[in-house]
């Protein structure tokens, strides 16, 4: 790309009152990160396609005289866009999202840290049986980076969960397990579901010592 092209695709926007320069095609999240502005995320990973599921990265953008909430990880930067990464409303919504997730994984250090920042009460909702917060990091990492597709989602709505394909898991997962450290709930659910899948496939496969 020559200099002229670069200039053409340069985008100027304002994030939290700060002038930020971005390139066309970048998201608000990328632009903010490049300017050292922190936006909390749970389902985002730089090696993966943006997903937009946790909605924690919601920010306020000014639009047609009002403001609108958008997911920073997906929203493409626009010329002269004004973004606020914190506001009373943004914080209120992040707090509720964290409370909803803490019902699944009350002991997750990542959730607890964010929960403290936003004043979330981890006991606001009754404890749910699954740790999984459906961020999809394991599923997408396995598909997009490792190209193994050993773990995927099943079902939908409130019963959506992750599930390993036993045949592939038995062959691949023992050497890999790269998805475990990605998990914001600290791999508890992935390890459990993997062990379950392997048990159904080959009862002799030992996992506990390695997980």
């Amino acid at each position: 790309m020559d200099e002229g092209m670069k200039n053409m695709s340069k985008i100027l926007l304002k994030i939290d009152g700060k002038d930020v320069e971005a390139r066309e095609g970048m998201t608000i999240l990328e632009a903010a990160q490049s300017a050292g502005i922190d936006i909390p995320t749970l389902c985002h990973h730089e090696k993966l396609e943006p997903y937009g599921a946790c909605r924690l990265c919601n920010v306020e953008v000014e639009m047609r005289g009002g403001t609108k909430l958008v997911a920073a990880c997906l929203y493409p930067v626009e010329q002269q866009l004004t973004v606020r990464t914190r506001s009373e409303k943004v914080d209120r919504i992040r707090k509720m999202i964290l409370q909803l997730l803490l019902a699944h994984a009350p002991n997750s250090r990542e959730l607890q840290r964010l929960g403290n920042e936003y004043g979330a009460d981890k006991d606001r909702f009754e404890k749910e049986s699954s740790f999984c917060i459906n961020c999809g990091l394991c599923v997408r990492y396995c598909a997009e980076v490792k190209k193994l597709n050993a773990v995927g989602f099943v079902s939908r709505g409130a019963t959506r969960e992750i599930s390993f394909v036993p045949e592939i898991a038995a062959r691949e997962c023992d050497q890999c397990k790269e998805c475990f450290p990605l998990c914001p709930t600290e791999a508890l659910q992935a390890a459990y579901v993997l062990a379950e899948a392997l048990a159904s496939f080959s009862p002799s496969f030992g996992l506990e010592s390695k997980a």
Partner: peptide, 12 residues
Amino acid sequence: VPMTRVQHIATF
């Protein structure tokens, strides 16, 4: 098509 997708569709 990856089995994960087939499974997701079959349960979705």
